[in-house]
Deep mutational scan, measured.
Amino acid sequence: TRVETATETAWISLVTALHLVLGLSAVLGLLLLRWQFPAHYRRLRHALW
């Protein structure tokens, strides 16, 4: 049971790290898009909202 718990903890930390990385890359990508294509971003936002 001790090994299982350790594996579970490792998986949880791995998944958390993955989610953090994905979230950060998504935010960075959005910022980059907004910085590179302001007109396109505004049009996209206008279409979405």
Results as ranks from 00 to 15, higher is better:
1 T>Q: 15
1 T>M: 15
1 T>K: 09
1 T>V: 14
1 T>D: 03
1 T>Y: 10
1 T>I: 13
1 T>P: 04
1 T>N: 06
2 R>G: 08
2 R>T: 15
2 R>C: 09
2 R>A: 13
2 R>H: 15
2 R>S: 15
2 R>P: 12
2 R>F: 15
2 R>M: 14
2 R>W: 14
3 V>E: 00
3 V>K: 01
3 V>G: 00
3 V>Y: 02
3 V>F: 02
3 V>M: 03
3 V>Q: 01
3 V>C: 03
4 E>V: 12
4 E>N: 09
4 E>P: 03
4 E>F: 08
4 E>Y: 10
4 E>W: 07
4 E>G: 05
4 E>H: 12
4 E>S: 09
4 E>L: 08
4 E>T: 10
4 E>D: 09
4 E>I: 09
4 E>K: 07
5 T>V: 03
5 T>E: 02
5 T>A: 00
5 T>M: 03
5 T>S: 02
5 T>N: 01
5 T>Q: 00
5 T>I: 00
5 T>D: 01
5 T>F: 01
5 T>C: 02
6 A>N: 05
6 A>Q: 10
6 A>P: 05
6 A>D: 02
6 A>T: 12
6 A>Y: 01
6 A>I: 03
6 A>L: 04
7 T>D: 01
7 T>A: 15
7 T>W: 08
7 T>Y: 10
7 T>Q: 14
7 T>L: 07
7 T>K: 11
7 T>V: 12
7 T>P: 15
7 T>S: 14
7 T>G: 07
8 E>P: 08
8 E>G: 02
8 E>F: 04
8 E>K: 01
8 E>W: 01
8 E>I: 01
8 E>A: 05
8 E>Q: 00
8 E>H: 01
8 E>S: 07
8 E>C: 03
9 T>R: 11
9 T>D: 13
9 T>V: 11
9 T>Q: 12
9 T>K: 09
9 T>Y: 07
9 T>E: 10
9 T>I: 10
9 T>W: 10
9 T>N: 08
9 T>M: 09
10 A>G: 11
10 A>Q: 12
10 A>T: 10
10 A>N: 05
10 A>P: 04
10 A>F: 02
10 A>L: 08
10 A>M: 06
10 A>E: 11
11 W>K: 03
11 W>Q: 06
11 W>Y: 11
11 W>S: 03
11 W>T: 05
11 W>G: 01
11 W>P: 02
12 I>G: 02
12 I>D: 05
12 I>K: 11
12 I>N: 06
12 I>A: 08
12 I>M: 08
12 I>F: 07
12 I>H: 07
12 I>S: 07
12 I>W: 02
13 S>L: 07
13 S>F: 13
13 S>T: 15
13 S>E: 03
13 S>I: 08
13 S>H: 05
13 S>P: 03
13 S>A: 13
14 L>A: 06
14 L>G: 03
14 L>N: 05
14 L>F: 10
14 L>S: 04
14 L>H: 05
14 L>Q: 05
14 L>R: 03
14 L>C: 06
14 L>K: 02
15 V>M: 13
15 V>P: 01
15 V>S: 04
15 V>A: 05
15 V>Y: 07
15 V>I: 14
15 V>G: 01
16 T>G: 05
16 T>S: 10
16 T>F: 11
16 T>Y: 05
16 T>N: 04
16 T>P: 02
16 T>W: 06
16 T>L: 13
16 T>I: 15
16 T>M: 09
17 A>E: 02
17 A>M: 11
17 A>F: 08
17 A>K: 05
17 A>P: 07
17 A>C: 12
17 A>W: 03
18 L>D: 00
18 L>A: 04
18 L>W: 04
18 L>Q: 00
18 L>K: 04
18 L>R: 03
18 L>C: 07
18 L>N: 04
18 L>G: 02
19 H>P: 02
19 H>Y: 13
19 H>N: 15
19 H>Q: 09
19 H>T: 15
19 H>I: 15
19 H>F: 15
19 H>S: 15
19 H>E: 08
20 L>W: 06
20 L>D: 00
20 L>C: 13
20 L>I: 13
20 L>R: 03
20 L>G: 07
20 L>K: 04
20 L>A: 12
20 L>T: 07
20 L>E: 00
20 L>H: 01
21 V>I: 10
21 V>S: 07
21 V>L: 13
21 V>D: 02
21 V>Y: 02
21 V>T: 14
21 V>K: 01
21 V>A: 13
21 V>W: 05
21 V>R: 01
21 V>E: 02
21 V>P: 03
22 L>K: 00
22 L>I: 13
22 L>P: 03
22 L>F: 07
22 L>E: 01
22 L>T: 07
22 L>C: 10
22 L>D: 08
22 L>A: 12
22 L>Q: 03
23 G>W: 05
23 G>P: 06
23 G>C: 13
23 G>F: 11
23 G>V: 14
23 G>H: 02
23 G>S: 09
23 G>T: 10
23 G>D: 02
23 G>M: 15
24 L>A: 10
24 L>P: 04
24 L>H: 04
24 L>N: 03
24 L>D: 01
24 L>E: 02
24 L>Y: 03
24 L>T: 04
24 L>G: 08
24 L>S: 04
24 L>V: 08
24 L>M: 11
25 S>F: 04
25 S>D: 03
25 S>R: 04
25 S>H: 00
25 S>A: 14
25 S>P: 04
25 S>V: 09
25 S>G: 05
26 A>S: 12
26 A>M: 12
26 A>W: 10
26 A>K: 00
26 A>V: 12
26 A>I: 13
26 A>R: 02
26 A>Q: 00
26 A>C: 11
26 A>D: 01
27 V>I: 14
27 V>S: 08
27 V>L: 13
27 V>Q: 04
27 V>W: 08
27 V>Y: 09
28 L>W: 08
28 L>F: 09
28 L>A: 05
28 L>H: 02
28 L>D: 01
28 L>V: 04
28 L>Y: 06
28 L>N: 01
28 L>Q: 01
29 G>H: 01
29 G>Y: 04
29 G>E: 02
29 G>W: 08
29 G>S: 12
29 G>V: 14
29 G>D: 03
29 G>P: 04
29 G>K: 01
29 G>I: 13
29 G>T: 11
30 L>I: 13
30 L>G: 12
30 L>T: 06
30 L>K: 05
30 L>S: 08
30 L>A: 11
30 L>F: 14
30 L>Y: 09
30 L>M: 10
30 L>H: 00
30 L>Q: 04
31 L>F: 14
31 L>P: 03
31 L>C: 12
31 L>R: 02
31 L>T: 11
31 L>D: 02
31 L>S: 10
31 L>A: 14
31 L>Y: 13
31 L>W: 09
32 L>F: 09
32 L>Q: 01
32 L>S: 09
32 L>Y: 12
32 L>I: 12
32 L>W: 11
32 L>H: 06
33 L>V: 10
33 L>R: 02
33 L>C: 14
33 L>T: 05
33 L>S: 03
33 L>P: 05
33 L>Y: 05
33 L>F: 11
33 L>D: 00
33 L>K: 04
33 L>W: 10
33 L>E: 00
34 R>Y: 09
34 R>P: 04
34 R>M: 10
34 R>L: 06
34 R>N: 05
34 R>G: 07
34 R>S: 07
34 R>Q: 04
34 R>D: 03
34 R>A: 08
35 W>I: 10
35 W>H: 06
35 W>P: 09
35 W>K: 07
35 W>F: 14
35 W>M: 08
35 W>A: 04
35 W>S: 07
35 W>E: 06
35 W>L: 06
36 Q>W: 10
36 Q>H: 15
36 Q>E: 07
36 Q>C: 10
36 Q>L: 11
36 Q>R: 13
36 Q>Y: 13
36 Q>V: 14
36 Q>I: 13
37 F>Y: 12
37 F>Q: 00
37 F>H: 05
37 F>N: 06
37 F>L: 10
38 P>T: 11
38 P>C: 10
38 P>L: 13
38 P>V: 11
38 P>A: 14
38 P>F: 09
38 P>G: 13
39 A>H: 12
39 A>F: 11
39 A>P: 05
39 A>W: 09
39 A>V: 14
39 A>E: 14
39 A>C: 04
39 A>N: 14
40 H>S: 13
40 H>E: 09
40 H>M: 13
40 H>T: 10
40 H>L: 11
40 H>V: 11
41 Y>L: 12
41 Y>H: 07
41 Y>C: 15
41 Y>G: 08
41 Y>A: 14
41 Y>I: 14
41 Y>D: 02
41 Y>M: 15
41 Y>V: 14
41 Y>N: 05
41 Y>P: 03
42 R>M: 11
42 R>Q: 15
42 R>C: 09
42 R>T: 13
42 R>E: 11
42 R>P: 07
42 R>S: 12
42 R>D: 10
42 R>H: 15
42 R>V: 09
43 R>L: 08
43 R>P: 05
43 R>D: 06
43 R>N: 13
43 R>T: 12
43 R>Q: 14
43 R>Y: 11
44 L>V: 14
44 L>W: 10
44 L>T: 06
44 L>R: 01
44 L>F: 15
44 L>H: 01
44 L>I: 15
44 L>E: 03
44 L>G: 04
45 R>M: 06
45 R>P: 00
45 R>T: 09
45 R>L: 08
45 R>K: 15
45 R>N: 04
45 R>A: 08
45 R>E: 04
46 H>K: 09
46 H>F: 06
46 H>E: 08
46 H>V: 08
46 H>D: 06
46 H>P: 05
46 H>M: 15
46 H>Q: 10
46 H>G: 11
47 A>R: 14
47 A>P: 04
47 A>W: 10
47 A>M: 11
47 A>I: 12
47 A>H: 13
47 A>E: 07
47 A>K: 12
47 A>Y: 14
47 A>L: 10
47 A>Q: 12
47 A>C: 08
48 L>P: 05
48 L>D: 05
48 L>G: 02
48 L>C: 15
48 L>A: 09
48 L>W: 13
48 L>Y: 05
48 L>V: 13
48 L>M: 12
48 L>R: 00
48 L>K: 00
48 L>E: 02
48 L>F: 11
48 L>S: 04
48 L>T: 07
48 L>Q: 06
49 W>A: 06
49 W>L: 07
49 W>T: 09
49 W>R: 05
49 W>G: 06
49 W>I: 02
